[in-house]
Amino acid sequence: MVRLYANDLNIGYGERLIVKGLSAQIPDKKITTIIGPNGCGKSTLLKAITRILPHQSGEIILDGANIVKENTKILAKKMAILPQTPESSSGLTVGELVSYGRFPYQKGFGRLTKKDYEVIDWALEVTGTKDFKFRSVDALSGGQRQRVWIAMALAQETEMIFLDEPTTYLDMAHQLEVLELLQKLNIEQERTIVMVLHDLNQAARFADYIIALKNGEIVKAGNCEEVINHNVLKEVFHIDAEIGRDPRTDKPICITYNLLKGENENEETIYPAHADAAASY
């Protein structure tokens, strides 16, 4: 089932187009990751889909309606987004930050209702941040802070959550913690998760559907087997990748890779690169 899709989308800044003639669909109640080299339009696409950034032409359809014409509060009840580097006002407590997720439901003077407080406590409980409720956000570690931001998105009670590089600046343990939380939300609550990731192996491990971008265009979209393979990675990242199987998930894994020389695919001269199982891009 698809509730959200884009048709012939052009997005840019001024006269410079970043995303060109793109058409894509987001599977409902699944985890979708967007991958691609730096500057290929991943974050731009995410911002356009969530109406943070206007698009020049084309259309983005959610539940049969063009999001450009949708009421802001109604849209905010359907989708929540966490930007790449979310920032909050200094001195806010965790509980205060999470309460911002209730904005689409507030009326009049914006006072929180009993229902609002119940949802806030539930979001804190689900993300394992309830013990931080009265603590300053500034005092939290990177992983704790990211979980609090996710709690705020949950308090918004949307069926779709969009995240722009949610693992950036986190160590390996905290990256896994955040991704497992998102996977849990998808499985147990059927939330549609869409996120930009640099790490190819994290994308393969957690995604049901992957969109690979290059120069603002989709090179390949599909399941992990269809996208995380030698030919697609060669075209998208210009690398010669060695693909194996993850012994825990049996999904494709990039074991190592070399950089290919030049733009001509027929050139087989290779530069060695520092490569490891993380395959971060």
Rank of each mutant, 00 (worst) to 15 (best):
G58Y: 09
E59L: 00
E59G: 05
I61E: 04
L62H: 01
L62I: 01
L62M: 05
D63C: 02
D63E: 09
G64N: 03
A65Y: 00
A65S: 04
A65W: 01
N66P: 00
I67T: 12
T72R: 14
T72S: 09
T72E: 00
K73G: 00
K73C: 01
K73Y: 09
K73T: 05
I74S: 12
I74K: 15
L75E: 03
A76L: 03
A76F: 01
K77P: 00
K78P: 05
M79W: 05
A80V: 10
A80C: 07
P83A: 11
T85M: 12
S88K: 07
G91E: 06
L92G: 05
T93H: 11
T93M: 10
E96C: 04
L97M: 09
S99Y: 11
S99W: 04
S99A: 15
G101D: 03
R102W: 06
R102M: 01
F103W: 08
P104Y: 04
Q106V: 10
G108S: 02
F109R: 13
G110M: 00
R111E: 07
L112Q: 06
L112T: 10
T113A: 08
K114I: 12
K115L: 07
K115F: 05
D116P: 10
Y117G: 01
Y117R: 15
Y117A: 13
E118L: 10
V119A: 12
V119N: 05
I120H: 12
D121W: 08
W122D: 04
A123C: 04
A123M: 08
L124K: 15
L124N: 12
V126D: 11
T127H: 10
F132C: 07
F132D: 06
F134E: 09
R135Q: 10
S136V: 05
V137E: 01
V137N: 08
D138C: 06
A139N: 14
L140T: 15
S141G: 13
G142Y: 04
R145S: 07
Q146V: 06
Q146L: 03
Q146N: 06
R147Q: 07
V148Y: 05
W149G: 02
W149P: 03
I150E: 08
A151Y: 08
A153N: 00
A153W: 00
L154A: 06
